[in-house]
């Protein structure tokens, strides 16, 4: 690497090339000058086929496409929301092969043959899923952006309790977990709601849970 390379900063790194004031902060020129050969290459595509809301879907995707972006951009199923794209908010929660997950942190190509259920697959305005109806009744939302993720999560949570999967809030590891508020709150904690509808969401889920008992 010669001097010229040192000056050509890869990506959005920075180099101090002068001083505005005597007190210029001396930031180190930590440069990786490998101008990504990979990035210059053509995008790499791969085929994947899975079921979404009961429909077989076959896609030819850039391998980088997350399940979330495949749903939102390629299939135009925008009910699944992108809140953070880093697994920190839960807005993208969908149910894959019976389990809820963050669609933002999994690649679409990793789901060959999977069965995916999104909010659109749970119910429609004319035929609401009981959880959707309960969220409306208890005002378990405000802006609505975290709502599809909350509802998908809630549906899966009731299944997890039924299946005997313990949680951090379970008093005992060996007993069947109970359908109680503290259990539901803990299990729903991967779904942030900045509008703060938590208290109402718990009421909605509890009502559905009790109706199913």
């Amino acid at each position: 690497m010669d001097d010229c390379d040192l000056m050509s900063i890869s990506r959005r790194k920075f180099l101090i090339v002068g001083a505005v004031t005597a007190a210029t902060v001396a930031l180190p020129p930590f440069i990786s000058a490998r101008a990504s050969a990979a990035n210059a290459a053509r995008p790499i595509k791969a085929k994947v086929a899975f079921q979404v809301n009961g429909q077989p879907r076959a896609l030819d995707l850039d391998t980088r496409t997350t399940l979330l972006d495949a749903l939102r951009e390629n299939l135009q199923l925008t009910g699944t929301k992108k809140g953070c794209d880093h697994g920190q908010c839960g807005a993208c929660t969908v149910i894959v092969d019976g389990r809820r997950l963050n669609a933002c942190l999994t690649l679409a190509v990793m789901h060959e043959g999977s069965t995916v259920t999104t909010i659109e697959g749970l119910g429609t305005p004319d035929k609401l899923h009981p959880m959707q109806a309960a969220f409306i009744k208890h005002d378990g939302y405000q802006c609505g952006y975290c709502t599809p993720g909350q509802i998908c999560s809630a549906v899966a949570v009731l299944g997890e309790i039924r299946d005997g999967i313990p949680s951090h809030a379970s008093p005992s590891l060996t007993d069947q977990p109970q359908l109680i508020t503290s259990e539901i709150q803990e299990r729903m904690s991967g779904n942030l709601c900045r509008c703060g509808a938590y208290s109402n969401i718990i009421e909605a889920i509890t009502e559905v849970a009790e109706a199913n008992v």
């Binding site: 809820r100 942190l105 999560s153 951090h168 991967g190």
Partner: peptide
Amino acid sequence: RKDYGLLSRALLAGASGQLRNR
């Protein structure tokens, strides 16, 4: 759960249900 409760508890204290599923 029965013999290595510490491990169950540690896992359940981490991340979220969605993340633990993956």
